[in-house]
Simulated assay, not measured.
Amino acid sequence: MSHRYRTIWLSDVHLGTSGCQAGFLLDFLKHNDADTLYLVGDIIDGWQLKKSWYWKQAHNDVVQKVLRKARKGTQVVYVPGNHDEAARQYAGLDFGGIAIRSEAEHRTADGKRLLIIHGDEFDGVIQHVKWLAYVGDSLYTLILGLNRHYNWLRHKLGRPYWSLSQYLKHKVKNAVNFISDFEHILAAEARRRGFDGVICGHIHKPEVKDIDGIVYGNCGDWVESLSALVEHHDGRLEVVYWTQLAAHAADMQSQPATRPAAADTLAPQAAQQETAPCAS
């Protein structure tokens, strides 16, 4: 189930919080490689770590895995966000093979110029009413805690992961309107600066779409959607959801054991009839 892409974008991992799905991310990093890996902000959650220390072994393993990829030749670019804004003071420097940049530019295999930016710079609440952002973050953390317990119960019942917090967010009209406005503002900024598109994070809404001729891509997150944005070797962009990919791979691995038994039930003549159209 391992795969190599031209580029992988990850954002909003929120290491240092109980809501971070570090185990899923570590599994993703083990099975997916790329020539370039972009970390598009909120990788470590400094806001929560200031309140209380939370750092499991899996969180450390994710950091070590990224550093190992950098040592093995992956170009790693880190664009800090608002939750890890302390790293912005080091923009322009490289540490451990990881380039820290306030923003970045990426050119796809088919020639598109993409602006890489976290996106909080275009969030009015973050920029002008930061205390409200802290309140919202606390409420969001509470919802993620409920989400974690809810999925623990689903796991015990043999059900797959499902994000309660993401479902609630996308059902609230104001949240839906905010997401739409954010996407169009980012696309307009990319156009104003002469880019063909923009890749961002911040709002935890994975997406790849065209907005008035501008490519808009959002990496998603690793607390709700467990998603990444990838570029295939032909330049095509795609959102991948790790829980779905892992489930599909498990299904594919289980199929060969059943196929021979099914094939054995076919008479030779019937098998020739089945394959004849393909041969022509």
Rank of each mutant, 00 (worst) to 15 (best):
M1W: 12
H3T: 08
R6Q: 14
S11P: 12
S11Y: 08
L15I: 12
L15V: 06
G16M: 03
C20E: 03
F24S: 14
L25C: 02
L26E: 07
F28G: 02
L29Q: 09
N32L: 06
N32T: 09
D35F: 05
Y38H: 07
L39M: 09
L39C: 06
D42F: 04
I43P: 02
W55N: 05
K56S: 09
H59W: 06
V63Y: 04
L67R: 14
V76L: 01
V77Y: 00
P80L: 07
N82I: 09
E85N: 06
E85I: 08
A87C: 05
A87R: 11
Q89C: 08
A91W: 01
G92V: 14
G96S: 04
G97C: 10
A99M: 07
I100S: 08
R101L: 14
R101F: 04
S102Y: 08
A104N: 12
H106R: 09
A109Y: 14
D110S: 12
R113Q: 13
L114V: 13
L114R: 03
L115S: 04
L115E: 01
I116Q: 02
I117D: 07
I117W: 11
H118W: 05
D120L: 00
F122K: 14
I126A: 08
H128G: 01
A133N: 11
A133V: 00
T141C: 01
L144W: 06
W152Q: 13
L153D: 01
H155R: 15
K156N: 00
L157I: 01
G158P: 05
W162N: 04
Y167I: 07
L168T: 10
V176A: 10
N177L: 10
D181G: 02
E183F: 00
A188K: 15
E189K: 14
R191W: 02
F195S: 00
D196L: 06
C200Q: 04
G201H: 03
I203W: 04
I203V: 15
H204M: 01
K205V: 11
K205A: 15
E207S: 14
D210E: 15
D210S: 09
G213M: 11
L229A: 06
H232G: 01
D234Q: 03
G235T: 01
V239S: 12
V239F: 04
V240A: 05
Y241F: 15
W242Q: 03
Q244N: 05
L245C: 04
A246H: 13
D251I: 13
Q253D: 15
Q253E: 15
Q255C: 00
P256H: 07
A257L: 11
R259T: 13
P260N: 00
T265D: 05
T265Y: 00
A267E: 12
Q273M: 11
T275W: 11
